[in-house]
């Protein structure tokens, strides 16, 4: 219990540091915000007027504290470029990204686990090499390259999937799923390779452990050894691994949402960055950071609930 309190507090501290990095990183460096938004040709007075409206004529520390104070009170600020409350932009984008992420996980977990367990069982044999080498390859190829290749083959070449992830308004569930499948697949390949290798590593440790030997020498059938002894221990660590990969998912979402033209948090941040809309950018990133910490703490809690080893340390 004490441990989770500590985790929570340290997450807040880390988020605070993060907010400072992001805020000062975007605001302080090249000086004038209004000038950057309006461009070099705008008049001095227009720039000054914009800065006054945005509050960016105030001292940076004051800007930072009012932004941070707003965040703590649930006021996410107003977008520079779109002139709407950031919350109104973020909420639907987050929902869309959550739907995509859910689909990714639903597809990814079974494949990665089955593949990882299979590779572990075949360890050292050609089948294992085939699986692990492909997984390794899939992890390291940038998501946008996977996305482009999938798009070229399955949308343009074979015509099986639409090129955009956004289904026409009022589409049914299946149609929406059809639109989302290709972008999801893109992430499943990239992240799946990573999770697969983690699953394999965990299961190999369990397979080669003394307790697995004990189970075999009790006279248990191979299936009973696998399901009752090996998987229970071997997959335990995967839970923590998956929750820590939520950050990676966000990184991938930026690219995928851009390629497949999907209105999620990734694309929102990308557009905000291009339009130099700092409030959306900073707030979006803090939200992403908070989600990262929440999920990784949640992953820890689930992990320790499942794993008695973390509960009793002699």
């Amino acid at each position: 219990m004490y441990y989770y309190l500590y985790r929570l507090v340290s997450a807040f501290v880390t988020l605070f540091i993060l907010s400072a990095i992001v805020f000062f990183g975007t605001v302080i460096l090249p000086g004038d915000v209004g000038r950057r938004i309006l461009g070099g040709l705008a008049s001095e007075t227009a720039v000054a007027e914009l800065n006054r409206q945005l509050g960016t004529d105030r001292p940076v520390i004051e800007q930072y504290s009012s932004w941070l104070g707003g965040l703590l009170h649930g006021d996410l600020g107003t977008s520079f470029s779109m002139r709407v409350p950031v919350g109104e932009l973020l909420a639907p984008a987050l929902l869309n990204s959550a739907i995509l992420t859910l689909l990714i996980l639903v597809l990814l977990l079974p494949t990665a686990i089955v593949g990882g367990v299979l590779a572990a069982l075949l360890r050292g044999r050609p089948g294992d090499h085939l699986i692990t080498v492909s997984a390794m390859a899939a992890t390291t190829v940038p998501d946008f390259v996977i996305g482009i290749l999938l798009l070229l083959v399955f949308s343009l070449g074979l015509g099986w999937f639409p090129t955009s992830a956004t289904a026409p308004a009022g589409s049914g569930f299946l149609l929406q799923l059809h639109h989302l499948l290709l972008p999801a697949l893109c992430m499943v390949i990239g992240l799946g390779g990573y999770v697969l290798r983690m699953v394999r590593a965990g299961v190999v440790v369990a397979l080669e452990s003394d307790y697995t030997r004990t189970a075999f020498l009790k006279g248990l059938s191979p299936a009973a050894v696998l399901f009752r002894h090996v998987l229970r221990n071997g997959l335990m660590s995967t839970v923590a691994v998956i929750s820590s990969q939520i950050g990676y998912i966000f990184g991938g979402l930026v690219v995928i949402e851009v390629i497949f033209n999907y209105d999620g948090i990734g694309r929102l941040i990308y557009v905000a960055a291009n339009q130099k809309d700092f409030v959306v950018l900073q707030t979006g990133i803090i939200i992403v950071g908070s989600i990262y910490f929440m999920v990784s703490i949640l992953g820890d809690i689930v992990h320790s609930a499942l794993d008695p080893r973390t509960r009793f340390k002699r």
Binding site: Y211, T214, A215, F216, L217, G219, L220, R232, N233, P308
Partner: peptide, 24 residues
């Protein structure tokens, strides 16, 4: 062989801590 392990021969190991399943 499983039949033999079930009822004819059993083993005691050097490191009992690792020979037992930590999650059971």
């Amino acid at each position: 062989r499983r039949l033999l392990r079930k009822s004819v021969v059993s083993m005691v190991y050097q490191n009992a801590a690792t020979a037992l399943n930590p999650t059971m």
